[in-house]
Design a protein around this nucleic acid. Structure first.
Lengths: 221, 221
DNA sequence: GATACCAATTTGGGATACCAAATTGGTATC
DNA sequence: GATACCAATTTGGTATCCCAAATTGGTATC
């Protein structure tokens, strides 16, 4: 594993895990000393994370991307387009057995499952569903969208009932795809994404003072 | 303009302009001497072009991305999803006057317009149409897709009739968007993209021997 | 006390040196 | 003539050094 991949992976995890807060300033020298790498791999990693949208340039200097409520809305539109396209492709496949693997992944979450696991499974559901389409670009788009949504979803206040509803909606989508009903799958997926977006934006909007108090930059919609 | 941006821009133009052929090997030292920059900005530029899909790693070393017919098919599916989503958004806008600017762009191409200009306008039409949606992610996706298609479209054998048909289809799409008929616009755009893909892949498939003779790596569908 | 100004520090951009792995070219052996 | 092997070269990965611009902190002036 090269130093650049090392720095990239660890820095991404720190950002996605909110160990480095949204809006925080980053200096190449700090990263250098933090991970024990020289500036060359550090800069390479920063360039890559920039294309992922996790960090951005702030004039001279680097900044962890803030939580941007308007952007979250645009991402929802974007992912709806690509996820629906992917699910339509998958529903038209002859072999849709990959669905069962995803269903098993959902079922691995129970009442005592830690919150981190729910979070990961919730993201992976959409990524793995897109993967079944066999289209690399749709998959990449969904993965990219989920990466950008990851931090916001982590900050979202979700009760037991919301988790259960998402779980049920996921299963309903899978059932539609399994039966080959592309229209039904598209309908359910669209509704799921729209509802997910509404709850997410509403939650962050309501909590924005608390988030800012924690040092997290939140850009209004 | 930083050296990194300089190298990135010039190298991108050389690749998209086929001055460096698909499949060709690149060494950091050659780029360094070619553009008079040191390795630091060269490496930064290579990392960025890699995320654009224009170059890739070939174990140890860099390779200009080959023309991949299977990939072109996947890109068509991807761009159909995002372009249709964008056009639906645009058709629902109150102010759709941006359409006229795009129409003027199309009309600036006439019988004596050089081929390069037709090529550029053909790509920009889709990018600018996506921009009207106001969704940054849809725009980025379309721009990315058109960048990846650019070299292949340049290699496509297009007769006068094909150019005229594309021009007419573009105008028909604009007319549907202007009238606010999202369904019609989506239908026309889908058909346009599918037809465009079929002609492109067929043309490159038929010419693949000639392309390989020119030193261009062509990966079969 | 406010402000204009200057020096010291910090920071990102770039250049260069070094290294290990891989490639290459030639040579000796059979 | 084919092949195995070794040295020289090439190449990407990394560390380090230098520089100009920007930021900062203090100081002198009004």
């Amino acid at each position: 594993m090269s130093q650049m991949q090392n720095v990239e992976r660890q820095l991404r995890e720190m950002i996605l895990g909110l160990e480095i807060g949204p809006g925080e300033r980053l200096t190449e020298r700090w990263i250098e000393s933090r991970f024990g790498a020289s500036r060359t791999p550090v800069r390479a990693a920063l360039l890559r994370l920039e294309t992922e949208g996790l960090i951005g340039r702030d004039g001279r200097g680097w900044t962890v991307a803030p939580i941007n409520l308007a952007e979250l809305g645009q991402i929802a539109v974007y992912r709806e387009a690509v996820e629906v396209a992917a699910v339509r492709l998958t529903a038209a496949l002859e072999d849709r057995s990959g669905i069962d693997v995803i269903a098993a992944m959902l079922d691995s979450c129970g009442a005592e499952t830690p919150r981190e696991e729910w979070h990961r499974v919730g993201l992976d559901f959409h990524i793995e569903l897109a993967r079944l389409s066999g289209n690399e670009f749709l998959l990449r788009a969904v993965r990219d969208a989920m990466t950008r949504l990851s931090r916001a979803r982590w900050l979202e206040v979700r009760d037991e009932e919301a988790l259960g509803r998402a779980w049920a909606e996921h299963h309903a989508i899978l059932a539609a795809v399994r039966s080959g009903d592309a229209e039904q799958a598209a309908r359910l997926l669209s509704a799921h994404i729209a509802g997910s977006r509404d709850r997410l934006v509403a939650s962050l909007h309501d909590d924005r003072r608390g988030l800012r108090a924690r040092g997290f930059a939140v850009v209004a919609a």
